[in-house]
Design a binder for these strands. Structure first.
Lengths: 220, 220
DNA sequence: GTCTATACTGAGATAGAC
DNA sequence: GTCTATCTCAGTATAGAC
C-alpha cells in the first residue's frame, strides 16, 4: 500500500526527507485546494475525479497515488479544514469573551465559504460517512474541535453571555449549522448585499434571533 | 409525449374522468410519497430510480410514464410540498400574530422532517435547478409561498414582533433555512431529546438566538 | 510517481411484448 | 400503462509503459 496521505498524522509535521517528498506534499496540497473548491461548488456526488484531476492539472490516475478513494480524499479535505479551525481556536486572543470568540469563528468560516473554500459534505451518503469515521485524522480533529467548541459554549453560559435554558449541544450545533446555512448562498445570489453584510446578518440572527428583543422603551 | 403529471396545473383539481385515470393519479401520489421519503433519507443523487420503483412496488419503466426524468420527479415532489405549505398558510387562524404563524409553520415543516417526509434537494445540482425552474407548477408554488412568507415577515416587523434592523429577505431565509438545518438530524441522532424537544429548541434559537437576552436589570 | 488507456459498475432512460 | 429486458454513458478505479 503506497497511498499514504502525506498529511496523515503518521508523519510528524515538518518532517520532510527529500526534495521529491516535498514536491509530492505540495502537489497534495494543490489537490486538496482544488477539491475544496469543487466540493463547495458541486457537492460530493457531482464532483468527478476527472474534473478534479483537470483542475489540478494532473492525470486522474495520479490522484489515486495520494488517496485511495474519492471518499478518503473528501475526508482529507474535511480534516484539513477541521485542523485549521482547531488552530484558529487555539490562537484566539485569550482576553476575548467566549461569545466574541464564537462569533469570530463563525465569521471566519463564512468568509472561507464566500471564498469558495468550504467543502460541504452530505450527511446522507453512508459510504462517505463510513470513510470519514474510519479515517483516523478526521475523527481526531472532529473530536478536538467539538470539545473546544463545547468548552467555549459552557464558558459563554457561565459568563452570562449565552442562554442557560438550552442544552450545550443545542447551542453548539446552532452555531455550527450556521456555517453551512443555505441562506448564505441565497442572500449572496440576490446581489443586494456585500459579502460582509451577509456575514453580519447571519451572525446577528444566529446570536440574537429573528425576534425583536424585549428591551423595554429606552435605547433603541 | 404521454408523460404528463396528473398533478400538473393543466388539469383542474377534482377533474377525474374515468376509473383508470383515478387509479393512475393514486399511483402517482404513491410515487411521490415514496420519493419524498427517499429524497429525505438519501438525497437526490443517491436516490436511484430502481429503489424508488421497488419502494412503490412498480416497475422502473412505469415511473417514466408519470415523469419524464428523475429531475422532474423531484420537481413534482417539491411542488407538492410547496402547495401544502401554501395551503397551510392560507388556512391559519387569522387572529394569530405573524410571529406565531411563522412559528407554527416552522414547527410543521420540522414535524414533517421528523416523519421522514421532507424532500431536501441540493442547490448544487445545476441540472436539477434547471429542471425546477423550468417546471411551471414549481415556480408558481415557490413564488406564492415566498410572497406569503414575505408578507408575514413584514407584518411581524410592523407589529413589533420581529427585528426591524434586518432586511426582510434575511429574516425570510433565516426561518426557511431552519427547516433544512442539519442540526435537527444531529440532535435527534444524539438520542438525548424527544422530537418535540428538538423542535422546541430549534424554534427557540431561530427566533430568540443563542445569546442571553439582556432583560437582567430593568430598563437596560 | 506520473502518464495514457482501459476495465468495470451503477444507474438513468428506452424498446417492445402484453 | 405496465411489465421485462436492454441500451448507453458517466464515473470510479486500475494496468502498464516510461
Amino acid at each position: 500500500m503506497t497511498t499514504a496521505s502525506s498529511l496523515s498524522p503518521e508523519r510528524p509535521a515538518g518532517t520532510v526527507r527529500s526534495f521529491r517528498d516535498r514536491q509530492f506534499q505540495l502537489r497534495e496540497e494543490a489537490i486538496l485546494d482544488a477539491a475544496n473548491q469543487l466540493l463547495a461548488q458541486r457537492g460530493f456526488e457531482l464532483m468527478s475525479m476527472d474534473e478534479l484531476a483537470a483542475a489540478v492539472g494532473i492525470a486522474k490516475g495520479s490522484l489515486y497515488k495520494h488517496f485511495e478513494s474519492k471518499e478518503q480524499l473528501a475526508a482529507a479535505s474535511m480534516t484539513r479544514l477541521l485542523r485549521r479551525i482547531e488552530s484558529r481556536l487555539l490562537t484566539q486572543p485569550a482576553q476575548d469573551s467566549p461569545r466574541r470568540r464564537l462569533e469570530a469563528l463563525l465569521r471566519w468560516t463564512l468568509a472561507e465559504r464566500a471564498a469558495g473554500r468550504m467543502p460541504l459534505l452530505p450527511s446522507t451518503n453512508p459510504a462517505l460517512q463510513q470513510a470519514l469515521m474510519g479515517t483516523r485524522g478526521y475523527t481526531e480533529a472532529l473530536g478536538a474541535v467539538g470539545e473546544a467548541l463545547a468548552q467555549l459554549v459552557e464558558q459563554g453560559i457561565e459568563a452570562g453571555e449565552l442562554r442557560s435554558d438550552l442544552p450545550v449541544p443545542v447551542l453548539l450545533f446552532t452555531v455550527y449549522a450556521r456555517s453551512c446555512d443555505p441562506s448564505f448562498d441565497f442572500l449572496r445570489a440576490s446581489g443586494e448585499f456585500s459579502d460582509e453584510q451577509v456575514i453580519d446578518f447571519m451572525v446577528a440572527t444566529c446570536f440574537d434571533g429573528m425576534a425583536r428583543p424585549r428591551t423595554g422603551t429606552p435605547a433603541q
